[in-house]
Amino acid sequence: MSLTRRDVEGIAHLARLQVTEQELPVYVDSLSKILSFVEQLSAADTAAVEPMAHPLEGEVQRLRPDEVAESDRHEKYQANAPQVKAALYVVPRVIE
């Protein structure tokens, strides 16, 4: 499996990651190697094998009743935000 620069630029865009000109060839090389490495999985016979859904047999994700269980702590949580105004997160203008 060999990726091109364009492939990696496309993946980086999907992942919302800026990759610099210097980083790009390094990722082209290492991502190609990783994908070649994991290609050995294709040789495994998995006909009639169910994909794993949970590491513990018979366990499923538990649901809980949709009830309010937490108090409002937005001030404490927003203390970590890069930019807040009137309890709202501030981002660059999206709609012109």
Partner: peptide, 24 residues
Amino acid sequence: DLLDLYKRSRGEGFGAEVKRRIMT
């Protein structure tokens, strides 16, 4: 813009191995 905010915050905030795994 917002896309630039996402891409550069993540591109500058994450190190090389983390970015490699996110892209994989």
